[in-house]
Design a protein around this nucleic acid. Structure first.
Lengths: 229, 229
DNA sequence: ACAGAAAATGCTGCATACAGAATACAAAAG
DNA sequence: CTTTTGTATTCTGTATGCAGCATTTTCTGT
């Protein structure tokens, strides 16, 4: 993280493959979101329209639209006459978010056991195995990313768009925090063990168990990150 | 509903009281949100920037920013190169939203019993009594509004910002639907009875009971609206 | 030297202008 | 009469320009 700020590539031009007409709005939103999550724009930073726009190579208009979008997502805060600043989350905020996330994932677990296809479960299993492999070789970054993917995938299995939406918003808001949380070896091992229980419960379509493990996992997540916020 | 579309009043000018510096952005967002909820802009309708902007008396720039904000809220959908359309919800969508809302309110009930102040509970009681009064005189509109307020108020008592956010988004998305749901006298009575149980459980700070009633109430809400979606 | 006021600078908020894409329409061919 | 293709119009997407507010800097008086 803390990358150099680079102009975003607008590959409306050639490049191989079908000429994907990427909407600038979406690109900008993703880009800004990443910049916030990865810490290029730290909490409290003012989003300077002129400056930021020049760095990214876009004019102020689409940039402002993207900022409004992110404001609705809760990543930035709009201050009248003073633009937008990257939102800062207190420890209580993080705890609150994890509480809600816990409840949502418990629900997702129950729904997923009913709604998921065998193929869907197999995909999660594949992600899980890959994650464990990354764990064993100590690849924290990929472990982290696969971890997130697994949680998202389980939510997807629940086949509930509203649930996926709400989960996505909270997960995005928390990414910045969780990314930082570097747990020690023993806590990391515990997290992996929980994930093991998870996948077993999912494959058995054991609602009660899966829901319980997901809930416990997020309770523990708070313990893992509370020090860093 | 189905009001005439009127230009929004921008009282940056005089008027009594302190010169409230109302940000146009917020005003526009609220206004558009209301137009969608109240059915002035029905699902599938294209949000015509030029036309809509002229009707509201604003230029396209702030209007587009407001639309982007609403898109992130999930009320409108952005179609590349074709602007924005009011999002249409299927019966399954509504059911999904109610499922999540149910889970969130159950959580809110549990948290509220711990976190709420006596004064806060008293305020909900006041809303409840007023709502019952409106029920008795058959004032559907005010009943409906107070109903929503009570649910929001209980969520507020939980003192969890993330929970309030997620609940708010879903409640807003559902407003358009629930507004339509005209239940018969017996179902209406049942809903009021549930609200009675609710306030009693809240005053007793009975977590289990309050959570259960809130959950049941929203289960039944689905039964009440399923016909109209 | 310091406090307060006034000017100056920089930024946001809104409006307008321009370019490109999508759609609607019309004319021509089958 | 249907289909297709070329053209015209309309609307979106992006850039730029201007006015007002906030903040900072500088000037002035004690």
């Amino acid at each position: 993280m803390m990358n150099e700020i680079t102009p975003l590539e607008r590959r409306a031009d050639g490049g191989p493959g079908p000429i994907r007409r990427t909407a600038l709005h979406d690109t900008l939103v993703s880009h800004l979101r990443d910049m916030i999550i990865e810490g290029d724009l730290s909490p409290g930073t003012r989003l300077h329209e002129g400056q930021l726009g020049e760095q990214l190579g876009v004019s102020r208009t689409p940039l402002r639209e993207a900022i409004k979008y992110l404001a609705s997502e809760g990543l930035v805060e709009l201050v009248p006459s003073r633009g937008a600043v990257v939102k800062r989350f207190s420890a209580k905020d993080v705890h609150d978010m994890l509480t809600v996330l816990q409840t949502l994932e418990e629900l997702a677990g129950r729904l997923a056991c009913d709604a998921a296809s065998d193929a869907g479960i197999a995909e999660v299993r594949a992600l899980h195995d890959e994650m464990v492999r990354r764990y064993k070789i100590g690849d924290r970054l990929q472990y982290y990313k696969l971890n997130q993917q697994i949680h998202s995938a389980i939510v997807q299995l629940a086949e509930n768009a509203a649930l996926a939406d709400m989960h996505g918003v909270l997960q995005t808001r928390l990414k910045r925090i969780r990314f930082i949380g570097h747990e020690g070896p023993e806590k990391w091992a515990a997290a992996v063990a929980e994930h093991d229980e998870m996948i077993v419960a999912l494959e058995a379509r054991d609602k009660v168990k899966l829901s319980e493990v997901l809930g416990r996992h997020l309770m523990n997540a708070w313990e893992r990150v509370r020090a860093s916020v």
